[in-house]
Every structure is written in C-alpha cells, then in structure tokens.
Design a protein around this nucleic acid. Structure first.
Lengths: 358, 358
DNA sequence: ATTGCATGAGAAAACCTTTTCTCACTTGAC
DNA sequence: GTCAAGTGAGAAAAGGTTTTCTCATGCAAT
C-alpha cells in the first residue's frame, strides 16, 4: 500500500526533475488517429493503407492521403507480433577488427534495406557465454534469421546455431553440415594471381603465406603449385608484415637465382615483403612483381608501390547471404551446401604494366 | 475470388516444394504453454515469472521451474508493444572503414548487453536518402534511442535527428545545439603527447598533421603550440602515409638544425614519417622520437619501430554514449552539452625508453 | 415483390504480454 | 457469529496492427 503510493508518487517526479530531452514516445500516431481523421474504422484504414480488402477508390485514396499528411507510420512491433516477421536479422561475428565483417555487413545491409530489413550487429569475441547472450537476445526479439560470419573459413563460431527455429546462413565461417554457407573461392583467387604473374613473364614465383593450419592457406598454396609448379618452396609463417620482411631476407640470402615474383598470402605480408625488397634495392615491379591477398585498402593502397591484390568480394558475399536468409525467412526453400564466390584481381602497380585484361 | 483461391492454393505448395531448412517459427513456446503446463492462468504465470503480484511461494517456484524446463522465452515484440520499450537502439554511422565506428560500437554493445539491449548498425555513406530510410526503419521498429557517430568531430551526419521522438546521443560527430555529445579531448591528447616528448628531453618538436580545416587538427595544433612553443612550424597536409613521408623530406631538406621529435596528426602520417626517417638513416627513437595519434593497431603496431601514440578511448566513449542513451530512454534526465573524454598515451618503442609513468 | 449478389465498410478476433481489477476464501479479532 | 483484513489466483483490458467475418445497402434479374 505504502509502496504503491511511493511508486505512483515517484513517477511524475522523475519526469519532472530534469529537462527531459528524450522527447518520450507520447503522441506517436497510430492507425486509430488515421481512422479518426479519415472518419473510417481502423479496419478500413488498415485495408486502405495495405491495398487489401474492398472499398471505394475514393475512400482508399483519402485514407492514404490523410495518413501521409499526419505522418503515420505503422508500428513494426505490432505488425511483427501478428505477421511473425520482424524484418530484422542478426549478424553474429567474432571478427573484432571488422576487417572481414564490415564489408560483409555492408553487403547484407545493401541487399536488405530495400526490403525494410534492419540488422543487429553482435560482436562476440570468441566468448561462448557472450555469444549465447546475444543469440538469445536476438531470438527474443524475433529476428527473421541469423547470419554467422567470422574471420576464418575453417573455424566455427563458439555457439551452436544448428537447431534454432529461425534460418541461419553462414558467411566466411564454417557452417554446420546441412546449412547454407557462403565463402570466397580462394583457390580461384590464388590461381588468378599466379596466372597473372605467369602471363607477365615471371617464372620464379615464390609464395609467402600464413600458417599452414589455415584451410585457406593450404587452398591457396595448392592453386599456386598447380599453376607455378614446384620450382619454389612455399614459405609458411604468420599473418604479419614482419613475416613478409623476414621471408624476403630468407629468400635473398639463399644462394642461387632469386625469385622474380612474390605471391603473398595477405596484404600485410606483401607490404612487409615490399618494404624488405626496397631496402635491399630490389625494384618493384621492375625486378620483382608482388601480389597480395585481401585488398585491404588501408594496407594495399599505402604500400609502395600500391599493391596488386586479390579481392574476395566480401560485399557481394554479404549481399548474397542477406538475400538467402531473407528467402529462407519467407519460407522459400534453398539448396543447402557451400557456395564459393569468385575473387577478383585488383590491379595496382606492384606487378608492372597494367597488363591487358583478357 | 479466383485470386484468393490461387493464393490459398499456392501457399502449401511453396512450403512443400523444397526441403525447407528454415525451421520456421511454428511451435514457439508462449506463456500460454507455460500456464497450461503449470496449471495456472496466464496472469499468474506472468506474475510468477516477473516476480510481481501476489501468490504462494510454491506456485511461483513451480511456474518458474516449468518455464525453464520447457524453454520458455518471452516474446520481446509483445512485451515491447505494451511497455513501449523495445530494448533496441540504433547506431548510425557514416564511417565506412569502421576505423572509428567499430570501437564505439564495441563499447556500446559492451555497456548495453547486460541491459538486454541489442544494436542496429546502419552504415550510411553520406547519402541523405539512405540515411533517412535507415532512420525511418529504426523508428518504425520502435528503437529506444539512436546514437549517431561519424569519422569527424566537426561534421554532421547527412540527416536531421533533432526532432525525433526518441532520444539521440552523438558520439564522435557533431550534434545539434541542445543535444548530448561525446567526443575525445584532442587538446588534452595532444598535450599528453607533446609533454611526453618534452619530458624525454626533446626540444625541437615538429608537428606533421592533417588538413587545417579539421577542427581536431586545429585543436591538436593549438595544444602543441602551447606546450612546445612556436619554435617549429606546423606542417598541414593530408591523412596519408605519403604525406608523412613527404613532410620529413621537407623538414630534412631545410637548412639548419633538424627536429629531434615528430608529433604526427595520425598514425598513418607517423608511419610514413618513420619510414622516411629510416630511409634517411635517421634512427628512431635514438635521433628522433615519433608519436602518432589514433592508436590504430594495424598501423601503429606494424610501424618500425612500433609507434607510441595517443588513444582516443573510443570504446569508453561508446560505453558512455550507450549508457546515456539508455538513461534518456528510461526517462532519466541528462544534462545536455559536449562531454570531452580524456585520451591516453600508448607507449611503444618510437620514443625511446619506456619513461616512467608519472 | 422477392431473390440473388455485388459492394463498401465495420466488428471482432488474433498475435503475446503485462497489469489492474475483482473475487473467493481464510484467518483473526471482536 | 459477524466483520475486517489479508491472501492467492484468475478475468479482462490494453498495446497497435492485420485479417476474417458479418452486415447493410443498392441494384439487377426473376
């Protein structure tokens, strides 16, 4: 009794006590206001606005006009409650830097904004508990679907998404057996790079790359071997500039002929390698061509000379993942399986002349 | 008539025609199921789960236990419809790279996940129409508030957020007159850097920075002058490595004594400068100390030697922005105005000995 | 004049929760 | 034995929308 009084007493105080600049939600216009203003029932108003039901053309137009005039916008919560579609999806990622996530996110958003879909971004940093909290929060909010993305093709997110009652699509991360997964075609990308070097007349192409336990490293190395043969060993290391630097030292300290091209596992390695070559007085691209992987602008474009590199088209990947999860949410069926998206070669100056695009 | 028939006929077909792997939403457990399973009314079930109302302790426990067992999770849409709180906020940004947005986002998410709040991320690339679409979509979804963030303190987002009926907080972008804005204290950050150099015994400190029309550039330059005096001119340029490189050329080509320290406007410039120094045979930090700004790991940590730099604590900034928008959404009042958050100096190896933290 | 049937529009249910109100029952005090 | 107060629990309304069902009207055909 006393408690209730206090509570009731407190509320107006709270709202009074400061210049509340929130604006509050009072006065949001509902379909009731539209109906009243147009002198029709809410059913008629709803039908008019949604172009459903039967009614005179004049009535429909009038309702629409009035709704526009008073600035009516339907409440998506109420709508979603009924339709069981929230026009909301969740993007789950463990890529803290955003190196991979941001382009994917941009693609998803780009593809779905026209459909009125908004995206929850949840960054979980390999923390299973945090991931579960985010997933639960998204499910509570009735997301229409979830896209899981990561920074590595051969790793799972630290949370099980396999038995959710909403569709899940995987992008640039390993999915569960019967899921839809989008990934870049690293083999094709590597082939693109090495063939480019071969076509430019390079014969002693070395491959400096990341840790061998990465699936994409092995895939790229495989394609490299197929195209370039086995004349040069693959140098496995870490994903850092310093490794690119060091690898060049190793290669140039070896007796015998030096490589005339370097295909690097990512742009950072390529940048380190380019720096090392410059310090040795080896000219890029005159003496040695360099190709990177990732097209990470901030690295690739700032390298001297700017780096020719393989772009994984992550934005397109995001776009397709977005459309797919939407299709599933709408009940359309989608063939499960892994979809490889082609990479594209971005030609800058580290390989010499802008050789003709075939 | 025919139309309706076709429609009704089509639906089952669509659901049939492929292995629908979406899982669908059928069978989502509601409070009705809980009430039925516990043999109580839904009112009692609701009160039991929310620890409100009056009932026997045994009943309350039983309902809770059963709810847990059958995996009940309340529908946030229904809840939000009633409470007028969606536990959702929107983050609007025009920072495509994510250089600034991602840390801010991480901070927001970090601060709000405990409160059950999820975040819509909307990347608008200085496109007013796109921005409006995203804002409308968020408002339709009844976000509890919006945080606007950008890549520059003295620029507005290309959309007017001043008369929304939800609270708006600005972070790292210019806000409207009576709003709450969070920004880094660039003056203090610059002071931190220059004082550090002075304390290390440097006397000829040059400042290589970005375009003078940036507010933060002027602010940092002001602090630089206050601490270092006017012995050296400020070199304004662009935010690129190449400019750092070129600026060093300019400085070292000048007759007379060379600087013994460089305070750079961002890490990219600092990196370019460091490279130029190394190429000239000038040793960092022995001959010249270098300090950057931003603490962009990918740049700062990969510079040789790793860069001492000023961190704007964007994650903390995001955290505070998140808590603030939440407070406003809850009707608590917040003093409008600009809040400057202190920067922090990240000491790496480009300034010599890890001088004692005072 | 009655039937049949379009037509236009409203009433009501449904979606899932929360909250307020009401009711039946028990208990203790007079 | 009556009354007041307290206790446990359910009924119902509310939130904003969509959809189905129903109803009244008018008109043409019988």
């Amino acid at each position: 009794m006393t408690l209730r009084l206090v509570k009731a007493f407190l509320k107006p105080i709270q709202q009074e006590d400061g210049l509340n600049i929130s604006g509050g939600k009072r006065g949001r216009i509902t379909i009731h206001e539209v109906a009243a203003a147009a002198a029709v029932s809410i059913s008629t108003a709803s039908k008019a606005l949604n172009d459903t039901g039967r009614m005179g053309a004049e009535t429909r137009e009038r309702v629409k006009r009035i709704a526009g005039e008073i600035g009516y916008r339907p409440n998506a919560l109420a709508r979603g409650l009924l339709s069981k579609r929230s026009f909301t999806i969740g993007l789950l990622t463990n890529d803290t830097y955003g190196r991979f996530t941001l382009p994917v996110m941009a693609g998803i958003s780009d593809a779905l904004v026209d459909h009125g879909v908004s995206v929850f971004l949840c960054a979980i940093e390999d923390d299973p508990a945090l991931a579960q909290i985010h997933v639960d929060a998204m499910l509570d909010k009735q997301v229409d679907g979830i896209i899981a993305t990561g920074k590595r093709l051969d790793r799972r997110l630290p949370v099980d998404l396999s038995n959710l009652h909403v569709p899940v699509v995987y992008a640039f991360t390993e999915g569960t057996p019967n899921s839809v997964t989008f990934r870049s075609d690293d083999e094709q990308g590597a082939r693109l790079a090495v063939e480019w070097l071969v076509k430019a007349g390079r014969r002693r192409i070395a491959h400096i790359t990341g840790p061998e336990e990465f699936f994409s490293v092995r895939e790229r190395a495989g394609a490299y071997h197929e195209v370039a043969g086995h004349r040069e060993p693959v140098l496995y290391g870490v994903w850092a500039e310093s490794w690119g630097h060091e690898a060049v030292e190793q290669l140039w300290k070896r007796p015998g002929e030096k490589p005339d091209a370097l295909f690097c596992g990512n742009d950072q390695i390529a940048r380190g390698a380019s720096d090392a070559l410059r310090e040795r007085g080896v000219k890029v691209p005159r003496d040695v061509s360099v190709i990177g992987f990732d097209n990470w602008e901030i690295v690739a474009a700032q390298t001297r000379p700017p780096l020719t590199t393989v772009d994984m088209e992550l934005k397109e990947l995001g776009r397709q993942a977005g459309l797919t999860v939407l299709a599933l949410a709408e009940g359309r069926s989608v063939e499960p399986g892994v979809r490889k998206l082609p990479c594209r070669l971005i030609v800058r100056q580290s390989c010499g002349g802008n050789a003709p695009k075939e």
